[in-house]
Design a protein around this nucleic acid. Structure first.
Length: 808
RNA sequence: GCCGGUGUGGCGGAAUUGGCAGACGCACCGCACUCAAAAUGCGGCGGAGCAAUCCGUGCCGGUUCGAGUCCGGCCACCGGCACCA
């Protein structure tokens, strides 16, 4: 009897489809478990082995949880709005909806080919008007809460996509998606006020089971820092406010710097004696792309111009100090102005050295002529600082802050690096923003009963030269009436970014066919929160942060029952090409899951992708190693012919079976899928060694079923177990703790920590018994001719270490 | 520069919480089966040595009866942030 994987796999996949084996029910009495994977973008290339790793992992988890007795929600859908589809549509003159539809067909087929236990009745698609109706609805709620606003500001403009990007989408000055340079451009944009949630996005991480690196990366991205705002009087009689995290160094502030974009540059323009030089610098700074700025930042070469004719006054000592403009000060952070303390800040130090400005040491502990002394702890003592002298930095910060408050010129202040989310995209294939502009009433939201605002058909999806969305050309759609006053008005023509639909999709799965709400209250109460969400690290500061933000807003307006959407977040490593480099079309090292399934079957594919290595780390694909997994399944298959008819456990394997039941369960929970499979392989090797009964094999099949469900169902049926139902519907085997240990144990004998041999003793033997057995061990006994025992260390059931010294 | 992570055989990787380094798999070698090969089964497989033994988890030092694991100091690579005051 041969293992015909291809027939077996289609047989069971068909049965699962027909019987809806993996459908789950809202409100079921069993405890719920919500396992989530990041839904794919249905690209034309189809499913990639990079998808198979996290999807298989969570499928294993979902299948295991069902066997543990949970009502498991394990859904899938498609994040289908986005640029590649639109670009493909433009090139081939096919409607993006058609492209999307075809790609989804292909993805669905591939996902089913791998035997994933998704509940296919809950499949969603972000481009479906019944779906994006609620994406638009959420936007309206954000508007009502004052969290959506339109403003003109310099934005990141991708020169190739001809589209605005969020800060999160710009990587090293280039577009994250296409790699083209990003320039800054003034544009009127919809913005979402994620900054209003900055503190809560940090604080609420505490109660979550996110892997630590995700928490840290999110915290760094949000970038909270505590300091003070300080007002400096100027010779113009106005006030220049700065933000500093080092108010303790105020006595060392020998000059000030403001960003080239700072409003005061214009305000003081008339007073400046070097206005030509200043405006030249401002123009030059504005001209620089983000890429050039980033490049220059790398070598830290400082540039700047003094604003001659205007000076500021240091409030602690009354000294007049110069004011510079320089692009090392960012207009978007703090107040866009700083007090420069060259002795204790490396950037200010470099600038001061270049421009010959005074460096005044106010914290003793370094050599400020050589480099800035920046430690912010108790290492340094305040000097040259009047009433602060003698204090440590940590003591000086509250002291000076108190003084600033008393003087009425400053206060404590918290700042974040996080900026508001640029939400407009000048493209066709996205959710229309349901807003209307009326000359009389301003921006007016579409009434909720007019949702969904359908994406109109256009003749051409080409981007316009002016950088406006293709929608702007459809005048019949753009021109409308104001929902407020009934007068003529224009629709917003920008669409939402791809992150919109994915910010709430996990809620729709809970109740995907609801026409009254994004999901019913009952459904959300039952399923919330997602118990385990696995996804890529690349989404940590984008999707994961955005969806936490939206969820908190929905929580605040009473729509969702929990503060946080996801209880546990884990992340998988990348699958690399055979040589260890990234898989890419250009390198020609892409592995297509279809080929692996055709050659070895879905079960081998699943098993290998889980066995390949540590789930959290990158792992190179090996076409040779795949065979090892196929060989293992062949060995399992052949056991059906070798096993005895006995229904219980055969004695020789019993303790190993109990141990393996525990190990596989523990390893799945800890994402150690590779060692879970190794344990199953060991057990199979034992079966070959010691023989196995039908009962042994039945248990092995149940343990294997989350990983290789098709072969398991087939063997389960052939062994005659089908009266109990399918293997995937069985409870997880139980183990007996007492049977995981054998009656006797091998203990290691060491002398001075070096391995000398081993002894077999009954479990939990007394120390004296163990020690005398150890001393009788031949090698140890031989050593005792010339040595004497100093002491012995016994680790229960593990080892004996005898410490010796030469006989006197 | 800052934050996080990782360094273990020819390769992918194991090793509760300081207790037999190299589980499991790949590759390779040997044996059985075969006319032969493949497949399969069984065995071997860190290095040096005939052996007893010695050496071995990126490098240098330390703590400990005992260190891949803990501490101090380096090096290399990967990921994130990057003039955030």
């Amino acid at each position: 009897m041969k293992y015909e994987f291809s027939e077996i796999e289609s047989k069971w996949q068909k049965k699962w489809q027909e019987e809806k084996t993996y459908a789950c029910k809202n409100g079921d009495k069993r405890p719920k478990y919500y396992a989530l994977v990041e839904f794919p973008y249905p690209s034309g290339q189809g499913l990639h082995v990079g998808h198979a790793r996290p999807y298989t992992a969570m499928d294993v988890v979902a299948r295991k949880k069902r066997m543990d007795g949970y009502n498991v929600l394990f859904p899938i859908g498609y994040d289908a709005f986005g640029l590649p589809t639109e670009n493909y549509a433009i090139k081939n003159h096919i409607h993006p909806a058609k492209v999307t539809h075809d790609n989804i067909q292909n993805f669905r087929k591939q996902l089913q080919m791998l035997g994933y236990s998704f509940d296919w009745d809950r499949e969603i698609n972000t481009t479906d008007p019944e779906y994006y109706r609620w994406t638009q609805w959420i936007f309206l709620q954000l508007w009502k809460k004052g969290l959506a606003y339109k403003t003109t500001m310099p934005v990141n403009w991708c020169t190739s996509c001809k589209c605005v990007l969020a800060n999160e989408e710009v990587v090293e000055g280039v577009c994250e998606r296409c790699g083209a340079p990003v320039i800054r451009r003034e544009k009127s944009q919809w913005m979402l006020k994620i900054t209003a949630y900055a503190q809560r996005l940090i604080d609420d991480l505490d109660g979550l089971d996110f892997i630590e690196r995700v928490k840290i990366q999110q915290k760094n991205w949000i970038g909270r820092s505590t300091g003070a705002e300080v007002d400096f009087k100027t010779t113009e009689g106005d006030i220049l406010t700065v933000f500093t995290t080092r108010p303790d160094t105020l006595f060392g502030a020998t000059y000030m710097v403001i960003a080239p974009e700072h409003a005061y540059v214009k305000k003081w323009a008339g007073k400046l004696t070097n206005s030509d030089e200043v405006s030249a610098y401002v123009t030059e700074a504005a001209r620089k792309s983000d890429f050039e700025r980033t490049e220059l930042a790398a070598d830290k070469e400082k540039t700047g111009v003094e604003l001659k004719g205007v000076r500021a006054v240091n409030p602690v000592n009354g000294k007049e100090i110069p004011i510079f403009i320089s692009d090392y000060v960012l207009s978007t952070y703090g107040t866009g102005a700083i007090m420069a303390v060259p002795a204790h800040d490396t950037r200010d130090w470099a600038f001061a050295k270049k421009f010959g400005l005074p460096i005044v040491e106010v914290v003793k502990g370094g050599d400020v002529e050589k480099e800035a002394f920046t430690l912010k702890d108790d290492t340094g003592i305040m000097v040259n600082s009047g009433f602060l002298n003698g204090l440590t930095v940590r003591q000086a910060i509250p002291a000076i802050t108190q003084w600033l408050i008393e003087q009425g010129i400053g206060h404590e202040k918290v700042n974040f690096k996080l900026r508001d989310w640029v939400f407009s995209r000048q493209r066709y294939w996205g959710e229309p923003i349901p807003m209307v502009y009326c000359e009389k009433c301003g921006w007016v939201p579409l009434p909720e009963d007019q949702l969904p605002l359908l994406l109109p058909n256009v003749d051409s999806y080409e981007v316009t030269d002016t950088g406006e969305s293709p929608l702007s050309k459809i005048t019949s759609w753009v021109n409308t009436t104001c929902p407020h006053c009934g007068g003529p008005a224009r629709r917003e023509t920008d669409t939402m970014p791809q992150w919109a639909g994915s910010s709430w999709y996990f809620l729709r799965y809970m109740d995907p066919h609801n026409h009254q709400a994004l999901a019913s209250k009952e459904a959300m109460d039952y399923w919330s929160p997602v118990d385990w969400y696995n996804g890529g690290m690349e989404h940590t500061t984008l999707h994961l942060l955005y969806s936490r933000f939206w969820h908190k807003v929905l929580y605040d307006i009473g729509v969702v029952p929990t503060k946080e959407p996801y209880q546990r977040r884990t992340s998988h490593g990348m699958i690399l090409g055979e040589g260890g480099e990234k898989m890419s079309k250009s390198r020609g090292n892409v592995v297509n899951p279809n080929d692996i399934v055709a050659q070895y079957g879905a079960d081998t594919m699943r098993l290998y992708i889980m066995f390949i290595g540590d789930f959290e780390k990158a792992a190179p694909w090996s076409s040779k190693a795949v065979k090892g997994c196929k060989r293992f399944l062949d060995r399992v298959w052949n056991l059906a012919d070798l096993c005895t008819d006995e229904m219980g456990y055969s004695h020789a394997n019993e303790s190993n079976i109990h141990k393996t039941i525990r190990k596989v369960a523990d390893d799945i929970e800890a994402m150690k899928f590779n060692t879970a499979i190794a344990a199953l392989m060991t057990l199979v090797n034992d079966f070959y060694q010691n023989g196995c009964s039908k009962g042994d094999l039945g248990t092995l099949l149940l343990l294997l079923s989350p990983f290789a469900p098709h072969i398991v169902e087939e063997l389960w049926q052939r062994l005659g177990y089908s009266g109990k139902g399918m293997a995937c519907q069985q409870p997880w085997p139980t183990y007996d703790e007492s049977k995981t240990v054998s009656a006797e144990v091998k203990m290691v004998v060491q002398v001075g920590g070096k391995l000398k041999g081993s002894i077999i003793v009954p479990v939990d033997s007394e120390e004296e018994t163990v020690v005398s057995a150890a001393l009788a061990e031949p090698k140890v006994a031989a050593m005792l001719q010339t040595m004497q025992v100093v002491k012995t260390i016994v680790v229960k059931n593990k080892l004996v270490n005898v410490v010796m010294k030469p006989k006197a």
